[in-house]
Design a protein around this nucleic acid. Structure first.
Lengths: 144, 144
DNA sequence: GGCATATGGTTGCCATGGCAACTATATTGT
DNA sequence: ACAATATAGTTGCCATGGCAACCATATGCC
């Protein structure tokens, strides 16, 4: 019973430490963690997506996405263009300024990932992932 | 590289789902998740502790603890008594009302834990814990 | 004793992110 | 065609929690 509590604390701590390391690198660039997450995500494959897709992929609500994209747009890193197939939706894409920043952002996240992986084999990672997926499935399962 | 992103999303999702399940049970009792966490913690062993100790054990900042304990005190579930050995510190303990609520709170958390564990062996849990500890250590390690 | 420093706690401010209500556009059923 | 419903996005409000500044008490050093 108690070990679940410990595991939850471990996860919380890991996410917090990661966030702090990322923030320490992004701060000097004038970016918040959430902004960095989105720039990284756009730069590494999801450029030109709807906000809803980004929200799904990053697993945060569309409300948060809306605000963070707004901030990034104000800073000139991304732009929203209405999609002509669906005038409710935007297409969010990096501006030239955003693209220039891309490699810098990417290296911030890759430094973190490299640090996490040190001394951890691919097999271990796979195992973590598999076990976490099972836990997630237990929590997702409807009702009882 | 990418799998770390996925794993982080899994952890985020697990913590969020857990929080939501807990909140769903605590809401009808008029308690927030953070309040429930503290009541549970007091009830299952850390009654009569300093706020700093609670903050350490629950892995949240002393500022948050201060606010949540304040809320619980206002609701009459805990009381703060100054320690005579150190007049800066409080001893936080459950009131009679808090003690009465204890079993109810406990069952909320135990239902969650049981749900998480379904189909997951103790060995698996141990493995998750061991791997997460190694990741946490990588993140903690000073500087480089 | 008296000053420097450390520690427990509180408060203000901020970032993140959930939920619900709302607007505007799309889609579906009749 | 039009009413009902669904979907993309925005906004307001709230909970959580970090950080820094601050206050009060403790501790150590001279």
């Amino acid at each position: 019973m108690l070990s679940i509590r410990r595991i939850w604390l471990d996860m919380k701590g890991i996410l917090r430490s990661s966030r702090q390391l990322i923030n320490a690198d992004l701060g000097p660039l004038g970016l918040s963690g959430a902004e960095g997450d989105i720039l990284f995500h756009l730069f590494t494959g999801s450029n030109g997506f709807q906000q809803e897709r980004l929200a799904e992929q990053l697993d945060i609500g569309k409300a948060s996405i809306s605000r963070v994209i707004g901030a990034l747009e104000a800073k000139g890193y991304v732009e929203r263009t209405r999609q002509q197939e669906d005038k409710r939706a935007y297409s969010v894409s990096l501006t030239r300024k955003g693209l220039l920043l891309g490699p810098e952002i990417q290296s911030v996240y890759e430094r973190l990932y490299a640090r996490v992986r040190s001394g951890i084999s691919d097999g271990d990672l796979l195992q973590i992932k598999e076990l976490l997926c099972r836990v997630a499935a237990n929590l997702q399962s409807e009702g009882e």
